[in-house]
Amino acid sequence: MLSVDDVLATRSGKAYDSDGDKIGSVGEVYLDDQTSQPAWVTVNTGLFGTSESFVPLEGARVEGEDLHLPYTKAKIKDAPRQDADKHLDVEQEEALYRYYGLSNGGTTHDGDRRDFDGRDAAAAGTAGTAG
């Protein structure tokens, strides 16, 4: 499981997909309300980083200032849009979990997700931003 400090260190770094392709820059970090652990991150995508996509941190890894995510670039770019400057409510978070093929406990149900190291980070409940 990634620590808050690990994920916050990536805020000046880049996000990469499961194939090693650059997606964009890391935006906001969202913590699980129940565990206070990092659960979601936004990635600035699109032309000139004009869009932000939510990505679950389950299975992600940090290398220096860069964040490597276990999803394809296309999957991340097509994620349902949510306001990145607000707290995720239960319905929004459930929609994102469904999109990424995860249950609220981090169980995968989707072939587009590629786990890097098999870690199982439970991310239940709603998520709020960190620092």
Rank of each mutant, 00 (worst) to 15 (best):
D33Y: 01
D33N: 12
Q34Y: 06
Q34V: 12
Q34K: 06
S36Q: 14
Q37G: 02
Q37I: 01
A39Y: 00
W40Q: 02
W40N: 02
V41E: 02
V41Y: 06
T42C: 03
V43Q: 06
N44A: 07
N44E: 10
T45C: 11
G46D: 11
L47G: 11
L47S: 11
L47F: 12
L47I: 14
F48E: 10
F48I: 09
G49E: 07
T50E: 15
T50M: 15
S51W: 08
S51T: 14
S51D: 11
E52V: 08
E52P: 04
E52W: 06
S53D: 10
V55Q: 04
P56Q: 02
P56G: 07
L57P: 01
L57H: 04
L57M: 11
E58T: 14
G59S: 13
A60D: 04
A60T: 05
A60S: 10
R61G: 12
R61P: 03
R61Q: 14
V62L: 10
E63A: 08
E63H: 07
G64Y: 12
G64D: 09
G64S: 08
E65F: 06
D66E: 10
D66R: 15
D66C: 12
L67Q: 08
H68C: 15
H68G: 11
L69G: 06
P70V: 04
P70D: 05
P70W: 03
P70E: 04
Y71R: 02
T72N: 08
T72L: 05
K73S: 14
K73A: 13
K73P: 05
K73G: 13
A74Y: 14
A74F: 13
A74E: 14
A74P: 03
K75S: 05
I76E: 07
I76K: 02
K77A: 15
K77I: 08
K77G: 12
K77R: 15
K77F: 03
D78F: 06
D78H: 12
D78C: 06
D78M: 06
P80W: 12
Q82P: 01
Q82G: 08
Q82C: 08
D83P: 06
D83V: 03
D83E: 05
A84D: 13
D85G: 05
D85M: 10
D85K: 07
K86P: 07
H87M: 11
H87K: 09
L88P: 00
L88G: 00
L88W: 03
V90N: 01
V90P: 00
E91H: 08
E91M: 04
Q92S: 05
E93C: 00
E93H: 00
E94A: 13
E94Y: 01
A95N: 10
A95S: 12
L96T: 01
Y97P: 00
Y97D: 13
R98G: 05
R98E: 05
Y100D: 00
Y100G: 01
G101F: 10
G101S: 03
L102G: 05
L102S: 03
L102Q: 15
L102D: 04
S103T: 10
S103P: 03
S103R: 14
S103C: 13
N104W: 04
N104T: 06
N104I: 09
N104P: 14
N104H: 02
G106E: 03
G106R: 03
